[in-house]
Design a protein around this nucleic acid. Structure first.
Lengths: 215, 215
DNA sequence: ACCTGAACACCGTTCAAGT
DNA sequence: ACCTGAACACCGTTCAAGT
């Protein structure tokens, strides 16, 4: 044990990393820190400490703190995308408007369960949003929503609203709810802190009902 | 000039403040900084510098940076409240649902025109939201919205949705739009960066139309 | 009563020097 | 090619000492 030579790619890197896959280790440490103590708790130095490396080392892999957090955000966005995909698979047989709803429910479920990660993928002040892969991930989800609403409209399931308005208002609603929760505003709007997801889904259902064609 | 004695209350405090109303000067400097360069640019030391005072002086008036920013947020919230009040006065003669809409328009107008101040009053990570006067200001606006929706319902202006759902979804929608704008997400949702207010109001109108009783 | 100025324990970031 | 460790210019916050 301890001949101090580790392969760069495969193999089981144990103990400290003097050579290992530092980039990945840094992102992993940052992801942990975000979950444990929120975005503001992520300092490059603390991440370096957790990776067992000197304070300057991370700058070999990320030009600045924002770039590190952007990598964290991209990983978080991947998880959100998977959540949405799973929800769509689970709702595969249902009408288009129900599948549209399922995306909202998945988003709310993920955002309320992972507030700090939701903050990272959302907040401009924290990451380089435009330069990240997040907009394209978003675009993919948006495209699914658009086609679901087109399908719903073709089936006569929509009311008076045009699909684009339904899409954007739905997105803003769900994003707004997730943000209100994150920003600690549920109490001041009479929403329960204990069952935030149930309350949020009930509101989403109210919205869906408002834009659906009357039965 | 310069006999170095300034009254604590009235009088015209000129030049530096060696004694003056430092608390107010600190808040004013912080408000300026927020507008100029955003929340993250507000450091206690920079605020002290702008007020012409030593780095430790602010801590005589605010226990921590968060308390200073909370004072900034309360001032910002006052301005937002005035904006809403003015909009309600301007819409005095109109039907309840139009006055409900006017509150949303005023909120959007203020938030999009003052993104950094909107961030300060909204973000939990930045201020002590619960301990501030902001929740009560919010409650006042919420109370007006509630009574407007009750009035709208009594007049038969609402569709199937119950007023509480209409209220909370309306709030989440408008908050979500303001946040999406602040977080730089308008482009990735196909919304114009140049005319964000017009686009947001159009969406709000779509929502109002969806919850209104069909004509 | 309020402010100064030095101090402490942190930051992000850079850069020579090491391996 | 990648990492160390010292350095720089910042922070928030505390606290003796000054007026």
């Amino acid at each position: 044990m301890g001949t101090g030579q580790t392969a760069g790619r495969a193999g089981g890197a144990e103990r400290p990393y003097h050579h290992g896959d530092l980039r990945r280790a840094l992102v992993a440490a940052a992801v942990e820190l975000v979950a444990e103590a929120g975005v503001e708790a992520v300092s490059v130095r603390e991440v370096a400490r957790r990776a067992g490396v000197s304070p300057g080392a991370p700058f070999r892999h990320f030009p600045h703190r924002t770039a590190l957090l952007t990598a964290v955000a991209e990983e978080a966005m991947d998880r959100l995308s998977i959540s949405v995909r799973d929800a769509l698979e689970a709702a595969a047989g249902e009408p288009a408007l129900r599948r549209f709803r399922a995306i909202g429910v998945a988003f709310l479920g993920w955002a309320l369960a992972n507030p700090a990660h939701f903050e990272v993928i959302s907040t401009r002040a924290v990451i380089d949003y435009a330069a990240s892969t997040i907009p394209e991930r978003n675009a993919a989800i948006r495209a699914v929503m658009t086609s679901l609403l087109a399908e719903a409209q073709a089936a006569g399931a929509l009311g008076r609203q045009d699909p684009e308005t339904v899409l954007l208002n739905g997105r803003a609603l769900v994003y707004g709810l997730a943000r209100m929760h994150l920003d600690g505003q549920f109490p001041s709007w009479g929403l329960p802190q204990d069952e935030p997801l149930a309350a949020s889904i009930a509101l989403l259902d109210g919205y869906i009902d408002a834009i659906a064609r009357p039965a």
